[in-house]
Design a protein around this nucleic acid. Sequence first.
DNA 1: CCTACCGATCGGTAGG
DNA 2: CCTACCGATCGGTAGG
Lengths: 195, 195
Amino acid sequence: MTDTRNTRADVVEAAGRLFAERGYHGTSMRDLGRELGLHGSSLYSHIRSKEDLLVDVVQRAADLFQASAQRAMAAPGNERDHLRALIAGHLDVLLDHVDEARTFLNEARALDAANRGRVLEARDGYERTFRRVLADGKTAGIFRPDLDPVVTGILLLSVLNSVDRWYRPEGPLDRDQLVDAILAFTLDGIALPGG
Amino acid sequence: MTDTRNTRADVVEAAGRLFAERGYHGTSMRDLGRELGLHGSSLYSHIRSKEDLLVDVVQRAADLFQASAQRAMAAPGNERDHLRALIAGHLDVLLDHVDEARTFLNEARALDAANRGRVLEARDGYERTFRRVLADGKTAGIFRPDLDPVVTGILLLSVLNSVDRWYRPEGPLDRDQLVDAILAFTLDGIALPGG
DNA sequence: CCTACCGATCGGTAGG
DNA sequence: CCTACCGATCGGTAGG
């Protein structure tokens, strides 16, 4: 029980936790104060508005996802390797920063138009990296020639973005097996080869 | 501009619309009244509480999904056919009843424990139908022998449940092509056959 | 379905 | 970071 004062980072982190759990509109400033052991009104010495907190949480997630994509693409290998690295990196961000990631994915609509626009741009840039790998892998003859990079990118990200809703590290799959399972599903599907 | 009185069904429908758009906690009873052209307090001649509305919306979605799964399984054909029917039926519910479906998928956490439990049970029963088809198709030699029905069911439903976030009927894919694209992705993946 | 409210809670400010 | 508030809004009720 250390009871030093809270920093802005502490406040943002706790906000992420509550926003992810109950949603932005389901979290009051007094809830957040209680989480940190102080009065709701005291939060305003760290921030200017509740929406500021949402912006900070969401921005942090956006940065993490972007950095992950950059690392994945900087690694050596062909498009198949890059795709695996993108998947693994995405799951690392999603599972190691669940609160920020969930808030980024689910609470953007609570932002005002300008900030929401920035989130959508960030998502779009991130999605473009997936699309590029898929398109390049198709050109390189690694992926199917009839593959649609736009649709496929969306389908894959749908799978990835839902993982936090069901995956439990105590369960039968460890993180590597999870990545392999999703990669196998994406690459080979479920039908018998040549069926 | 007909201005007959609203029925309970009208109220539930409008609630679904707003809950899907802004979330349960992002919707006030006065917002909902405005949507229907009456005062927030007047809604209480139709309902007893705001949560009642959420329960109704979510229950309607649960019923639609369950009925869809039953129809899909009652149709003739093998497991591959049943899987296609499950996918097509799911997308019909999701896209023809977006508001109820979205609320069902995203706003369950706003329910109290008992009602949330019922939603989770409904989802679980629905998911079991998918698992059964996958397991039976594996036994029948239609799907891969190494297929994990639990994980695969989750991955497929992740894809399906995200469709309303990106699919636009005015876009390049009509509904049948959408079903085919998702079925192809699920069955065959993106790798070159024999790659 | 409206008018006229209720107590509770909301995000936020002033002043220390 | 606390105390003491602010006006606005919340879900909901009483009585017509």
